[in-house]
């Protein structure tokens, strides 16, 4: 399994792979939840897990240089007022990539909106149909 090998496989590398596998497992389980659970509430919970797993994955991507060393990455804030080129280079090596965090922030906000909307619709379904079981919510067919 050459392609699973992480550079300098130490405890951190092992943890990184373990985290990735967990996220993947989470994605698959939540997909199962959305596709196969009959209750709309359970579907929404699974959907939350799905989008949060995606967000965690994105955050994990941002961790620069983590698998290689013991020293943790630093926040993406440059603490020198007038940086020289060497400062920027060393900063880029140790700092966390800020872009995935920005992406996740956006995705979280959007996910919140969608989730709220789905929760409202489920509530409305419960009011109108008296159930949240999708096997019974099937007036439209054919």
């Amino acid at each position: 399994m050459r392609f699973l090998k992480v550079r300098n496989m130490d405890i951190n590398g092992f943890l990184f792979v373990f985290m990735l596998s967990t996220i993947m497992l989470n994605l698959v389980i939540s997909l199962y939840g959305v596709f196969a659970r009959p209750s709309l509430i359970k579907k929404i919970i699974a959907l939350t897990i799905l989008s949060d797993s995606g967000n965690v994955l994105a955050i994990a991507v941002g961790f620069r240089d983590w698998p290689s060393g013991w020293s943790p990455s630093t926040p993406p804030v440059l603490n020198v007022t007038s940086p020289k080129a060497s400062d920027v280079v060393s900063f880029a090596r140790v700092a966390v990539d800020p872009l995935p965090q920005a992406l996740v922030l956006t995705a979280v906000v959007i996910g919140l909106a969608v989730m709220l909307f789905l929760v409202f619709l489920t509530l409305q379904i419960y009011r109108l149909y008296g159930t949240t079981d999708v096997r019974k919510v099937a007036k439209l067919k054919g």
Partner: peptide, 8 residues
């Protein structure tokens, strides 16, 4: 019903 089926 249509909206939740679409949205989910």
């Amino acid at each position: 019903e249509a909206a939740i089926k679409y949205g989910m």
